[in-house]
Amino acid sequence: MVVRTARWGLSRAAWQRLALALLWLGHGTWVLLGPNPARHWMTFLDLLSRPSQAIAARWEGWRAARRDSGRSLAELRTENARLGTELTQLRTEQAQRAPRLAEADEAVRLLGLKQQIPLELKAARVLFATRPATFGSLILDRGRDLGLEPDQGVLVPEGIVGRLWSVGPTQSKVLPADAPNASVAVMLMRSRATGVLQGLGSGRALIRYVSNQEVVQVGEAVLTSGLDRVFPRGLLAGYVAEVAKGDLELRVVVNLSAPLDRLHAVLVLPPQPPLEVQPPFLAPEPKAQPRKRGAP
């Protein structure tokens, strides 16, 4: 039998076997690669190109850094001037908004106080303050148009302010609690001793008619007693600053808690308020009872 050999010393049968093997392996590989076989090549090429991509990214980053650092001084000055102008504008806007924000905060606090006291309180804005002058007072923007009358109590969330002294058609004047001619019926929180608060000026007042036998501590809270029928019982007036024994009575100096020099809005109590004011009654929500077995 003569065996024909081709180039590279392989016979025809060997070439056929080789072709068959390549055909079978090629098809099998194609089948194993499945759909979208290019993705394997793309993954492989992506893996190969990672070093060059990293080098290119570093090169680009270096160029960007060099470009940024090469900015001219004039550009930086221009930008600095622009930023300074923007900063000034923002500060001006902030300064313009600050009073309105403060008024909004005060209004929110007044609203909270109004919800805590179950009386018909009326809000008014402070137009002007003549407190630095002798017998100075506060001018409110509401008067008889709001139904105000003299001797109505005035308060803010920090404490009492004073009482209405005179009421005009559209404005009214407040006699602050630290005025020399002002008087408020008060009591001390711990000893429950009562007295009359008389103004000393500059946010201070003196409690009169407290017996020498009473024990009063510095820092003790001073509340309204409600006996003057201007303020109901229990509103904060201030805190005891000094205590000294006199001939017949204690000399108790009080720092009023309301910031009388920084008021923008106040609440006005109704005339002749009740002596005792209870906080609003809120019915507790019924607890969910576990359902009994067999109940519908």
């Binding site: 079978w24 194609w30 089948v31 759909p35």
Partner: peptide
């Protein structure tokens, strides 16, 4: 599916 699975199986079985 036109992915050669049938052709490969045919080739294998024919061989």
């Amino acid at each position: 599916p036109h992915l050669g699975g049938t052709a490969w199986a045919d080739l294998t079985l024919a061989l």
